[in-house]
Computed example of a mutant assay.
Amino acid sequence: MAFDTFYYDNRAQTICISFEQWESENILTTYVDTVSDVEDYSSGEFYKRELPCILHLITKIDLSFVRFIVIDGFVYLDDNNRLGLGGHLYHSLEKKIPVIGVAKTNFAAIQENKKSILRGESRKPIFVTSAGVNLEDASKYIKSMHGKFRIPKLLKELDTLTKIRSPYE
């Protein structure tokens, strides 16, 4: 599964997609949830804004079949294991489901606990962090995802879906 959230008008729309294999071309299932009165962004504490949105959506999903969760962001914020969004999610799930963070921009405070990977013909890397799964394996999984561009096809589709407002608001 992969989660992403988009913010607008003091609201947040969180989308979760499921897929069968890392190499899958298509989304298996899409889950949507909108939360009002979202916390303002606080530098270095992004998880306080997005984690409640993800956890709210998770209550509506059967996690028994989930092997991994991918988030847009970092699992750790430094090499002393200061938790980022993914780390807080991993702990919130009682460390039962490995979490892989995929970030489009580098975070300078972390050196050892992240891996930069190049996909397709891009010369610009994406950055992978993980909890509950070896960083090398997590990086291989993300690298193997379908698509010939820097951002895997399913993660790009997820990002696009978050920006389409739900008709059920």
Rank of each mutant, 00 (worst) to 15 (best):
G73P: 06
G73I: 07
F74S: 03
F74P: 02
V75P: 02
V75C: 07
V75I: 11
Y76K: 04
Y76T: 09
Y76N: 05
L77N: 08
L77D: 04
L77S: 08
L77I: 10
D78C: 11
D78N: 14
D78G: 09
D78I: 07
D79N: 13
D79A: 14
D79V: 12
D79T: 14
N80W: 12
N81A: 15
N81Y: 15
N81S: 14
N81V: 00
N81F: 14
N81P: 06
R82P: 02
R82D: 12
R82N: 15
L83K: 15
L83W: 05
L83D: 12
L83N: 15
L83H: 11
G84K: 06
G84V: 05
G84S: 11
G84H: 05
L85T: 14
L85W: 03
L85A: 12
L85E: 09
L85S: 11
G86I: 10
G86M: 10
G86H: 08
G87P: 02
G87A: 08
G87I: 03
G87F: 02
G87S: 05
G87W: 00
H88L: 11
H88C: 00
H88D: 10
H88I: 13
H88N: 13
L89S: 10
Y90F: 15
Y90Q: 04
Y90K: 01
H91M: 11
H91F: 12
H91Y: 07
H91P: 00
H91K: 15
H91D: 11
H91E: 14
S92Y: 04
S92R: 04
S92E: 07
S92W: 06
S92C: 07
S92K: 07
L93C: 00
L93Y: 05
L93Q: 05
L93D: 01
L93G: 01
L93V: 05
E94A: 12
E94H: 10
E94L: 08
E94N: 14
E94R: 12
K95D: 09
K95A: 09
K95M: 11
K96W: 01
K96E: 08
K96H: 06
I97R: 01
I97E: 01
I97Q: 03
P98Q: 08
P98A: 11
V99W: 02
V99P: 02
V99D: 03
V99S: 03
V99Y: 00
I100Q: 11
I100V: 13
I100C: 08
I100K: 07
I100P: 04
I100T: 12
I100D: 04
G101E: 06
G101M: 13
V102L: 13
A103H: 06
K104T: 06
K104L: 14
K104R: 08
K104F: 02
K104G: 11
K104A: 07
K104P: 04
K104M: 07
T105F: 07
T105V: 12
T105E: 14
T105S: 15
T105A: 13
T105Q: 13
T105N: 15
T105Y: 10
